[in-house]
Write a protein that binds this DNA or RNA. Sequence first.
RNA 1: GGGGGCGUAGCUCAGCUGGUUAGAGCGCUGCCCUGUCACGGCAGAGGUCGCGGGUUCGAGUCCCGUCGCUCCCGCCA
Length: 435
Amino acid sequence: MTRTLIAELGEKIGERVTIRGWVHALRDQKRMQFVIVRDETGLAQVVLEKHEPASEENEAVSALTAESAVTVTGTVAADERVKLGGLELRLEELAVDSPAEPELPVTADSALDKRIDWRYLDLRRPDRRLIFEVQTTVEFAMREFWRKDGFIELHSPKFMGSASESGAELFKVQYFDRDAYLAQSPQFYKQMAMAAGFGRVFEIGPVFRANPSFTSRHDTEFTSVDVEISWIDSHEDVMAFEERWLSYVLAEVSRQHGEAIEETFGAQLTAPAVPFPRITLAQAKERLRESSQEPVAAAHDLDPAGERALSALVLEEHGHEFAFVTDYPTAVRPFYHMRHEHDPTLTRSFDLLWRGIELTTGAQREHRYAQLLAQAHEKGVDVGPIQYYLDFFRHGAPPHGGFGFGLTRLLMQMLGQDNVREVTFLYRGPHRLAP
RNA sequence: GGGGGCGUAGCUCAGCUGGUUAGAGCGCUGCCCUGUCACGGCAGAGGUCGCGGGUUCGAGUCCCGUCGCUCCCGCCA
């Protein structure tokens, strides 16, 4: 028995075929029975006349429940009466592969948290499926671009013996007779690849953050996209790569799914023009102070409201949805970010904002061993546990820099969703470990 | 972690200043309906009002605690 996909039925009029999928709807009438079957390619109407007395097939159709997994064999017929594509399948054989219990615990309009409880049912909806079709295209396009640019793919370890940045957000796990930590970032390892002479690397992999954060854009485990590039002159080279690369990825997604995304989520997607606008953090705060309604926080960083306001400002002035914010103060950046020679209170770093949220963070890294050590000490970093990392810079390390970001933040903005949980296959948060 | 809001039927929600048998829509069950397509009609089942304590003659409603959800902030990607 060959399975025919519902999308292919139009080419098989008059033929006897077998479709396999889920019962989407059931209309069991006195003389006619209609079953709408759904597979991953679409919906199809299955029809059966009722006999007197009811045939075995009639009884089987009557006993169906919504969302049961079924295999239906019948003849494809064109019929103008059918609103669903003018096609139907005249039922000859019906097999229930796995019945669904009569009452479903969630519906399309259930609260997100409840939909996650029953994620496998939630994900059966075509619009949810589109999210993961897009995710697949995003990763494919990224790799395509990287590969053309000579990047090497990394799979760095997720067990670590020490923190890669600060200790606060690390998950501690038992590792035989001692403690280990789950990697919060592949940062140290992609820098090791620079010292190893790999030149340009990327990694798409899981990272773990023990933040008790309850927001629409945080989770405790997420897929991080990381890039690191050797032989750069400054963080500008990193930004120049990132914008070309992102623009390509968005162009591909727009080309392949733009219409579906707009239809399903109402979100418009076009490839952004390169270069993206750049503004230093100091200038950004100055501009916000000038133009603004709301007081700008005195802190060293932009708060979420500041990010939204800045994005709006850039969109208004440059017609651009992206904005690089550069030159963050040394105080708010990790010890390994390279500092400006003319002003060591500022780092050669950047954040990338898209449609009001922080998408990526990047920087040129400090590759000079003595300078790196001095910065670690100045920041009060305990260098004992990370000596292996510092060693990477003792035998010839190229100047380098890179960036990283959460894949779901990109997807969320791309699809006009308001929560990373919506675009995460299975969300992990402080209170969520199942399913 | 701090602040606001919320928790009532399988789902989404209503329930006014405390007052007798706690409601609606959808779903579910049964019956009816000559092709439905958001099918339609009739009938019915279904709730220890998140949990624990308190105030009161009386608590879904007020108070305290607790758990969970949600939004904003902090932290970040």
